[in-house]
C-alpha cells in the first residue's frame, strides 16, 4: 500500500453539525469522544470512512460523525456493511451496534460477519438493557433482572459477546469500557488496524435504565480488585498488589487464584495470537457472575484471509482462466447459430 499524505485533522473535523441527543450522562458520549479524538491520529481520510449502524441508542452514532454514514435497520448493519466493505475495499467501514441490535435481532448477521472476516470494525456498545424502547431486559442482562417486561425477574441466562465471537471464529476480539478513554482508544486503534473483522465489546453505562451495571468492575474503587488487564506476553495478574492471577486447571478451564511462591509459575501468560481460540474462550468464561473479576483488552488477534481480498483473488483467477470480460462472447457461450 502506498502511503498517502493525509492532512492534519482535529476532533472538530470528525464531528458533524448535528446536536448529540443521547441522555445527559450516557456512556455513549465518552465513546464518541474517544473515537473522535482518536480518528485524527489514524492517518485515514474522512471521505474514506463510513459508519454503519442498525437501531438503538448506539445506532445514532453515524449522525454525529462528519464521515459517510448509514443508519439502517435493526440488527442488519453487519450485513449491510459487508456489502459495502467487499465492493469498496478502499473504505474504512465501522459498524456501531448495541447488545440488542447485535446479539438479539441481529445475532445471525453478527456471527456470519465474524466468520467471513470481511474488513469491518464492529463496535458493540453493551449496556445490558434496551434503552431506546425504555428499559426492557436485553440478551446480556443478568438472570433475574427486574425490568418493565420482567416484573418477576428475567429467566434467561445472559449471552457473552466475547464467547460468542470466539465461537464464531472471529479473528479479532476485544473488550473495553466507557470509563477509560485511553484504554478505549488503544483497543479501537488495534481493531482498526486489524485486517479482517474485529469485534470490540464496550461496557457502556446506561444511566437512565441500568445505571451502574458495570460499576463493580470499572468504578475507580473496584478496578483494582475486579478489572483484569490483558497484556500480550505478560502473565495475567491483577489486584491492588498484583496478588491475584489466572491459572489453568486440569479441565482446560482457567481460574482465578491468590498467588504465592508455590503457584506463581503457573500464571497464564497472555497470548493474543494463539491459533486455537480455546484459551481466549476460557478467559471469556472466567467470571461466574457479573460482579467478579473481568478481563479487559484484546482476547484474540490472529491473521486469517480477509474476505474481500479473497473475492478479488477469485476475480483475478477468473480473468486469468477465461480472459478479459467479453460480453459478446458471453451471449454466445451456450452455443449459437447464425441465420442469414
Amino acid at each position: 500500500m502506498t502511503t498517502q499524505f493525509v492532512s492534519v485533522t482535529t476532533r472538530k473535523d470528525w464531528s458533524s453539525d448535528q446536536e448529540v441527543r443521547w441522555c445527559p450522562g450516557c456512556g455513549d458520549y465518552s465513546i464518541l469522544a474517544a473515537l473522535q479524538l482518536l480518528l485524527p491520529e489514524l492517518n485515514i481520510r474522512r471521505e474514506e470512512t463510513v459508519f454503519v449502524s442498525g437501531i438503538g441508542c448506539a445506532a445514532r452514532f453515524p449522525y454525529y460523525m462528519n464521515t459517510y454514514g448509514m443508519h439502517t435497520i435493526h440488527g442488519r448493519a453487519p450485513a449491510i456493511a459487508t456489502g459495502l466493505a467487499v465492493t469498496r475495499p478502499d473504505l474504512n467501514v465501522f459498524v456501531v451496534s448495541g447488545d440488542g441490535d447485535a446479539l438479539s435481532i441481529g445475532g445471525n448477521h453478527l456471527i456470519h460477519a465474524l466468520r467471513r472476516n470481511a474488513n469491518l470494525t464492529i463496535l458493540l456498545f453493551n449496556n445490558r438493557i434496551y434503552g431506546l424502547t425504555k428499559g426492557q431486559y436485553s440478551p446480556t442482562s443478568e438472570r433475574g433482572k427486574t425490568t418493565k417486561s420482567t416484573p418477576q425477574g428475567s429467566l434467561e441466562r445472559p449471552l457473552d459477546p466475547i464467547s460468542l465471537a470466539l465461537g464464531a471464529g472471529a479473528t479479532f476480539v476485544a473488550r473495553t469500557h466507557d470509563m477509560d478513554r485511553s484504554h478505549m482508544q488503544a483497543v479501537f486503534r488495534r481493531a482498526h488496524e486489524h485486517h479482517g473483522t474485529s469485534l470490540v465489546e464496550i461496557y457502556q453505562n446506561c444511566n437512565v435504565f441500568n445505571d451502574g451495571a458495570f460499576s463493580d468492575i470499572n468504578s475507580k474503587e473496584s478496578r483494582a480488585a475486579n478489572l483484569i488487564n490483558l497484556r500480550h506476553g505478560e502473565p495475567i495478574r491483577f489486584g491492588a498488589n498484583d496478588e491475584f492471577g489466572v491459572v489453568g486447571d486440569d479441565t482446560g478451564a482457567l481460574a482465578i487464584t491468590t498467588l504465592g511462591p508455590e503457584n506463581e509459575s503457573r500464571v497464564v501468560v497472555h497470548d493474543e495470537h494463539l491459533a486455537n481460540p480455546a484459551r481466549a474462550f476460557a478467559l471469556a468464561r472466567l467470571m461466574v457472575s457479573d460482579h467478579e473479576p473481568t478481563p479487559m483488552g484484546v482476547f484474540r488477534d490472529v491473521d486469517e484471509p480477509e474476505y474481500g481480498d479473497q473475492i478479488s483473488l477469485q476475480a483475478a483467477a477468473s480473468r486469468e482462466a477465461r480472459g478479459e470480460a467479453d460480453l459478446s462472447k458471453l451471449l454466445r457461450s451456450r452455443g449459437s447459430w447464425h441465420v442469414d
Binding site: 442488519r76 450485513a79 449491510i80 459487508t82 456489502g83 459495502l84 467487499v86 465492493t87 445471525n108 448477521h109
Partner: peptide
Amino acid sequence: EDEIAAVGAAIGAAYG
C-alpha cells in the same frame, strides 16, 4: 446467511 442479509448487503453495495 439469509434473505435479509442478502438484500442488506446489496443495499450496502449500492451505497458504495
